[in-house]
């Protein structure tokens, strides 16, 4: 139950970080008076964080595929968190130096939270990998399932490169080496090995998703879409 609370706390942090980005994006769009086409229809009213969360269709979401995969075994949940948090930690360390003050502020704030996520998930990868035969086996199964989704984190798409050129973003390809070193270190402590799979699933960052994202959005957006004028 304690770990259930932990994963919920981590989700809360991540939702908060996403809200910070969405709020900032809304401010930018509203000040630039860009005619927004969110959700396929032009919105007369001002864009808010909710426009991004509740009224975009799946191709408008630009996330890596790994994070939209459905829940599975606990080992899978832990491993995904570990892969993601270790990457996010490296990414936000770079975003700290962004020449956009608000992006930098969001990153600095989030890094304090990410430190907890990295430590917690790393400990669990080791604990399960170096635990019982059963937990070790499940961890290996999770690695086999998830590994081909990790490559996408390090392949920049056009808007990421544009952000690099503007000094706002960072080149994600350069994060790979540190990330791999950390994974190898944690895996060796957990008696796990890095697979030699070369397949990389991509497309999420360009809006080409698995069918799972639609399922997530259907649930997430159901209330907002049923009552689009509701105020809370």
């Amino acid at each position: 139950m304690e770990q259930d609370i932990a994963i919920t706390n981590i989700s809360l942090d991540l939702i908060g970080q996403a809200r910070n980005f969405y709020q900032y994006a809304a401010t930018l769009l509203n000040t630039q008076k860009v005619s927004s086409q969110i959700g396929g229809g032009s919105l007369e009213q001002a864009v808010t964080e909710d426009s991004f969360a509740y009224f975009r269709k799946s191709p408008e979401f630009k996330n890596i595929l790994m994070v939209e995969l459905p829940k599975a075994d606990w080992a899978f949940t832990i491993l995904r968190q570990f892969f993601f948090s270790s990457w996010q930690n490296l990414l936000f360390e770079k975003l700290k130096e962004s020449n956009d003050a608000q992006i930098s502020a969001i990153a600095v704030k989030a890094l304090k939270e990410i430190a907890y996520h990295v430590r917690w998930s790393s400990e669990w990868v080791i604990r399960l990998g170096d635990g019982t035969d059963e937990s070790h086996e499940r961890m290996e199964k999770a690695i086999a399932e998830l590994w081909s989704y990790t490559g996408e984190m390090f392949i920049p798409v056009h808007y990421e490169l544009e952000a690099v050129n503007n000094g706002i973003g960072t080149d994600v390809a350069l994060l790979k080496e540190s990330w791999m070193q950390n994974v190898e270190k944690i895996f060796s402590e957990g008696r796990l090995s890095v697979p030699s799979v070369s397949v990389v699933h991509t497309g999420g960052k360009e809006g080409k998703h698995t069918e799972y994202l639609d399922q997530v959005l259907k649930e997430l957006q159901s209330v907002a879409r049923a009552h689009p004028t509701a105020i809370w």
């Binding site: 809360l12 942090d13 939702i15 908060g16 970080q17 910070n20 969001i106 939270e113």
Partner: peptide
């Protein structure tokens, strides 16, 4: 200023 990013 929020204590945590996700502070509800």
């Amino acid at each position: 200023t929020p204590t945590y990013s996700g502070c509800p």
